[in-house]
Amino acid sequence: MKAFAYLTADDFEAASKALAGKGPRAVAKAGGTDLLTLLKSRLLEPDEVVNLSRAKRGAGKGELSALATLAEVAADAWVKENFPAVAKAALEAATPQVRNAGTVGGNLCQHTRCWYFRDASYTCFKRGTGDCSAAPDGAENRYHAIFPHKRCVSAHPSNLAPALIAVGAKVACVHPDGDRTLDAEILYDEGPSGRRSDTILREGELIRAVLLEPSPLAKRSTYVELRERQSFDFALASVAAALDLDGGIVKDVRIVCGGVAPVPYRATAAENLLRGRKLDVEAAARAAVAGATPLSGNGYKVPILGELVRRALTELSS
């Protein structure tokens, strides 16, 4: 790690102010479980690290503090009861030690695990150092996206993001130019030409809390993932699904996939196919993967994703 000054913020407002306008010279740290790995490999060499971990949590009713740890989310009775996908996603993430330190905000804003992104000696669209190294011939891309973007084929790493999108969560953001509340899904909007940063947050903008509103859709939600190694592993693919059934007819449904695209991937075709009809799990599973364009080394993720959609919907329909 390069030496840095350490600024501990009392609240998100102060932290955001300290970060804004400094570009890569200042970074925010919550639990530090992702940030420290990037600092150690010198992918980031900020002059200042702004510590959020002692900021006032200030989360109100129906809110999940951005500083809540994954372990706290997984164990929270209200979340378990009303947003089972979120609790499950948190429980399945990482290791017990990481879940005790890693936070909701950090999990949503963590950087991709693409090994080319994480090694400064390769060019990388996300790092702004050139073209994606994972796409061309000869690249090792077995864990990458099957719904790749033209300019980046990394796989989205977060467990929480698909789950939060599936239950319709919003994120409350703080910035000196004005606070705002975004749909969790908007956070990852790629835009037409791709985006370097992992989220659409403005420079210095911070997530203060996640806003959760109970709904029948959210209550009937789940999260499933598939790991190569069971002990801990980033998921080969994950599916967060939420289903609102009315006498066997699908009133509303959300199917959001992790690990298969540079951002959480909304299986819109499958959702559209299901909405207003009798639940047809097989058709949904087929539709979810229909548009997949796997890379040289990850075609196997396609049937896995289909199976996860099948599992999630089957669980929700019983």
Partner: peptide, 25 residues
């Protein structure tokens, strides 16, 4: 061990990408 064929660099020279069996396995 996964080597990038273009550079000869081991892309998984850590304990996340290089997976050894753990308790749940």
């Amino acid at each position: 061990r996964i080597l990038d064929r273009r550079t000869g660099d081991q892309v998984n020279a850590d304990f996340l990408g290089y997976k050894i069996a753990g308790a749940l396995d």
